[in-house]
Design a protein around this nucleic acid. Structure first.
Length: 386
RNA sequence: UGCCUGGUGGUGUAAUGGCAGCACAGGCGACUUUGACUCGCCUAGUCGUGGUUCGAAUCCACGCCGGGCAG
């Protein structure tokens, strides 16, 4: 229970369904030095505790700060230091909520972990022969939330079958308005609370502010990709990502044109920019490579058309999935990446990489971000852009 | 030193005697459990001093600054 409405209602529904349920707040980050922003986490704990009281369930705060720092914050900072654009929330789900916390819950006698995600876990289906001949369908499926405007399945793209087996998403078949109504009718303390945003658990802190506090400045030139002309300087490549327009600070001097980031050059820490055109080098990609492939069900081992969600809240789009030949292909990035390390254990298929061919070129696919694979509204898995 | 030419928000530019506008940049906000994108709102300017005029970015004089030609 995060102290928001969604997890509040999730707890309420479980209780109403007769489950033996307890509430827990995962304390993962507290802005120790008050470096950035205030401390809304205290308020969140109070809210979560009040809701638990209202519902009539036990409540406790579970301290996972060390794990969060090691598995998410380290991944985040290391990723940016390497010029990537990490996705901390996806990693938080895999490593913390359904990782460390799931283990904690199991240790304490709980059968499953429920969250306030807008996603659905489907019961095992009858055996289904899939068109690529992979075999019978087994295990649980992860479906998009019923509320397509709030669907959060994307953030669960790197979960494993084992993790999904222990996961429950009580609000996955509700729409946000329905959920608000339930919270209001039940008189929950969080019924009218504004949705949270920002980095999971770190609070409503802008990423730039967070990075400013934890990553030293590393200035470099801003270079126009088309002719190599140096247009200015920047304070650090970690403040930018592919396709970004804001904060470059270079006027275009051309009507209705603006510069966007089209790349980062490690050699001299140059920020490569170009006008925001479909043909700008590197801005749009018709093909992209992904690594650290993760599958919720059967891995896809043969070329096959799939749907993909390129980023959160984007529509699913058609693509051709072309796995690289050779089992157990080592993953390119360094083993210091927690994402890699975690993927390193178990199924060798997780090591695999693939080539993705989009039907339509996609904009701003930054290395380190996640591509989620779908078959209709069923989430199949995900991979990390190389 | 003489002549020519130009000077408008942070940047590039419109307005040729009649409400200084646009674009980009910047700020704030909306959207959003990641990074982005997007959308809305806003800040900010006539090189200076005088003069002509009901009225000056616009015309005149001088000055300052930047280009060019002449030397």
């Amino acid at each position: 229970m995060s102290g928001g409405v969604d997890s509040s209602v999730a707890a309420l529904l479980l209780k109403q369904q007769g489950h033996d349920v307890a509430g827990a707040y995962m304390k993962n980050w507290i802005n120790e030095d008050n470096v950035i922003g205030d401390c809304p986490w205290q308020r969140d704990i109070e809210d979560a505790r009040r809701v638990a009281e209202q519902i009539g369930i036990d409540f406790q705060v579970v301290n996972l700060m060390r794990d969060y720092r090691e598995r998410v914050v380290a991944y985040l900072l290391d990723g940016y230091a390497r010029g990537l654009t990490p996705n901390p929330d996806i990693m938080c789900n895999r490593e913390i909520k359904f990782g460390v916390f799931r283990a904690w819950a199991k240790d304490h006698g709980f059968a499953a972990v429920a969250t306030g995600h807008y996603a659905r876990r489907a019961e095992p289906q009858f055996h289904v022969i899939r068109e690529n001949g992979v075999g019978p369908e087994t295990g649980f499926s992860l479906l998009e939330g019923t509320d397509k405007n709030k669907d959060q399945s994307y953030f669960l793209a790197l979960l494993s079958q084992a993790q999904l087996a222990d996961a429950r998403f009580p609000i996955g078949d509700l729409t946000k308005p329905e959920l608000r109504a339930i919270a209001r009718d039940a008189g929950l303390a969080t019924a009218g609370k504004k949705d949270s945003q920002g980095i999971c658990f770190i609070g409503e802190v802008k990423m730039a502010d967070f990075l400013r506090a934890y990553v030293p400045d590393a200035p470099g030139p801003i270079v126009r990709a088309s002719d190599g002309c140096e247009l200015g300087t920047h304070r650090g490549l970690h403040f930018y990502t592919l396709g970004q327009r804001r904060n470059i600070g270079i006027p275009s001097n051309t009507d209705h044109e603006h510069y966007v980031v089209v790349g980062k050059r490690a050699a001299d820490r140059a920020l490569m920019v170009a006008f925001d055109h479909p043909d700008a080098p590197g801005l749009f990609q018709h093909e992209v490579r992904v690594h650290s492939l993760s599958w919720i069900g059967e891995p896809v081992l043969e070329p096959r058309p799939l749907e993909g969600r390129v980023r959160y809240r984007d529509p699913r789009i058609p693509l051709e999935f072309i796995p690289d030949a050779g089992r157990g292909l080592p993953t390119p990035p360094s083993p210091t990446d927690p994402a890699m390390a975690a993927a390193g254990s178990g199924d060798p298929a997780l090591h695999r990489t693939a080539l993705i061919r989009f039907r339509d070129p996609q904009r701003g696919l930054a290395s380190g971000q996640i591509l989620a694979f779908y078959d209709g509204e069923r989430l199949l898995g995900g991979g990390i852009y190389s």
